[in-house]
Simulated assay, not measured.
Amino acid sequence: MVICLVIFAAGVGLRQADRWWFSPRRGRRRPATLRDIRALQRERANNVTPTLLLAGHWLELVGWWLAAARFGPLGWAAAAVAGAVTFRRLQEISHFAVHGVLTRSGRAGAVLCEAAAHVPLGFVPVPVRRQRHVREHHPNATVTGADPNLRELHAAGLRPGVVRAHFLRALVFPLTPAGATVTVRGLADNILTSGGRWWRLAGFAAVPVALGAALGWQAALFGWMVPRLLLYPQLAWMSLLVEHRWWDAEPVVGPPAVVEAARCLRLYPNSPASALLARGTWLPYGDLYHYAHSAHPAVRWNYLPLLEKTTLGTPEYTPDALLLSESAVVRHHFRALTRTVGAGGATAVRVPGGRPRGRLEPANRSGDGLASR
């Protein structure tokens, strides 16, 4: 037990170097504008603290794997849950590497991203993810036929007219047999159809094989296979569901902040405890601030809360719950999928202090799949 705690504490400690170095609270003057934030981010950009950040997460995993090998069912459960959360964190860190803001050098960020996340977790190569996420998703979020993320939701059964039972099943799609099959097929496709596939396959297999050889099948199964194939995909799926107003977004014309305010949402703006839990588990490293990220993708996660507070405000839809309230995200999505969409209206953006930043142009629904129901 002591060894596990020491290793885990060492991993957490390593991670704090990056957090401290990029903290907007460190320094004589706190940045107050987007220009200030970008200048501070450029000034502090480096290749060392991100390396320590990723190494810290892997060291934490070692501590959980030891727990799985030594402490029976309780250790298995802890390792499975902690492994899934850590994989989510690695996914989000690598997401910022794909945007080029993890490190000072874009090449160093890509190498770190591949070595610490993409290869061992079986993701697509960095250039492929950059194409899908930066070039296809960001400019086309919520646009039917153009957004690859929306295609994933459609493939899971989240389509206009869905019945309640199918909708509820789609919410936990990665945990269903069909969802697990999609995960396995996706892994095979990611690894076997990419360049350098033999070493990507070897890299993906190396961790569970080494775990089984060094610590036993329990560590390999509960420390790697269960979180990677079931629990982590579910956490990532939940994150995807709360990124956007997927089925009732109002298309508008304007600067990025205005466009994204109409199609993003901001979860837990008035629930600090829920927000803290989400940031520590399934919405890590800026994922809770998806509106701020969508409006300014080149801003590192450390500065997204400040950007929201000082510059952007929040989008129109700011639910305080995922499941259990009238305005909860899940209920909102279900209503959007099961009602007939009327004529477009106008959207307002809320800024700090709750005052609207003015009216936007009426929505242009041409090409909107919901409008043709």
Rank of each mutant, 00 (worst) to 15 (best):
residue 99 H to N: 08
residue 265 L to A: 05
residue 121 L to K: 08
residue 337 L to A: 00
residue 163 V to K: 10
residue 115 A to C: 13
residue 246 W to Y: 02
residue 287 D to G: 14
residue 17 A to M: 15
residue 249 A to G: 07
residue 280 G to K: 04
residue 243 E to R: 11
residue 215 L to G: 14
residue 3 I to D: 15
residue 294 S to D: 01
residue 149 N to S: 15
residue 372 S to I: 14
residue 205 A to M: 15
residue 50 P to M: 02
residue 242 V to Q: 07
residue 340 T to Y: 06
residue 133 H to G: 08
residue 310 T to P: 03
residue 251 P to I: 04
residue 65 W to L: 10
residue 122 G to L: 05
residue 182 V to L: 13
residue 11 G to A: 12
residue 249 A to H: 12
residue 4 C to S: 05
residue 97 A to V: 14
residue 308 E to G: 15
residue 292 A to Q: 06
residue 145 G to P: 12
residue 208 P to E: 04
residue 155 A to S: 07
residue 251 P to Q: 03
residue 296 H to R: 00
residue 96 F to A: 14
residue 293 H to A: 03
residue 344 G to C: 05
residue 224 W to L: 03
residue 146 A to V: 13
residue 283 L to G: 02
residue 83 G to R: 02
residue 77 A to Y: 04
residue 231 L to I: 10
residue 77 A to W: 08
residue 159 R to Y: 09
residue 103 T to L: 10
residue 23 S to E: 08
residue 350 R to E: 00
residue 257 A to T: 10
residue 78 A to I: 14
residue 317 Y to S: 09
residue 107 R to H: 14
residue 124 V to L: 14
residue 141 A to M: 05
residue 38 R to N: 06
residue 285 Y to N: 12
residue 344 G to K: 00
residue 186 G to C: 06
residue 297 P to M: 11
residue 154 H to I: 13
residue 86 T to K: 14
residue 248 D to Y: 09
residue 9 A to F: 02
residue 6 V to E: 05
residue 323 L to Y: 13
residue 319 P to I: 04
residue 156 A to F: 13
residue 343 A to Y: 11
residue 193 T to W: 11
residue 227 P to K: 03
residue 265 L to C: 08
residue 113 C to T: 14
residue 205 A to W: 10
residue 364 N to E: 11
residue 88 R to N: 08
residue 6 V to K: 01
residue 1 M to S: 13
residue 119 V to K: 14
residue 221 L to I: 11
residue 369 G to T: 10
residue 82 A to Q: 14
residue 296 H to Y: 04
residue 127 P to E: 01
residue 13 G to C: 10
residue 149 N to C: 12
residue 235 L to F: 07
residue 266 R to I: 00
residue 328 A to T: 06
residue 16 Q to C: 05
residue 345 G to L: 02
residue 287 D to K: 09
residue 92 E to S: 13
residue 341 V to C: 12
residue 293 H to C: 04
residue 65 W to P: 15
residue 154 H to P: 10
residue 311 T to R: 12
residue 297 P to Y: 01
residue 108 A to G: 10
residue 100 G to Q: 07
residue 299 V to D: 00
residue 43 E to T: 05
residue 239 S to R: 12
residue 54 L to Y: 01
residue 41 Q to H: 03
residue 240 L to Q: 03
residue 32 A to K: 11
residue 19 R to P: 05
residue 288 L to M: 03
residue 76 W to M: 09
residue 14 L to E: 09
residue 62 V to A: 09
residue 281 T to H: 03
residue 246 W to H: 06
residue 343 A to L: 10
residue 213 A to Q: 09
residue 241 L to Y: 06
residue 22 F to V: 13
residue 199 W to C: 05
residue 26 R to T: 07
residue 28 R to V: 15
residue 174 P to C: 10
residue 73 P to V: 07
residue 358 G to Q: 01
residue 135 R to L: 09
residue 361 E to F: 14
residue 33 T to M: 07
residue 175 L to C: 04
residue 225 M to R: 02
residue 42 R to A: 15
residue 354 G to E: 01
residue 251 P to R: 01
residue 179 G to N: 07
residue 319 P to S: 03
residue 22 F to W: 12
residue 280 G to H: 10
residue 201 L to Y: 08
residue 164 R to K: 04
residue 152 E to N: 12
residue 335 R to D: 03
residue 318 T to Y: 08
residue 48 V to S: 04
residue 193 T to D: 06
residue 275 A to Y: 01
residue 317 Y to K: 13
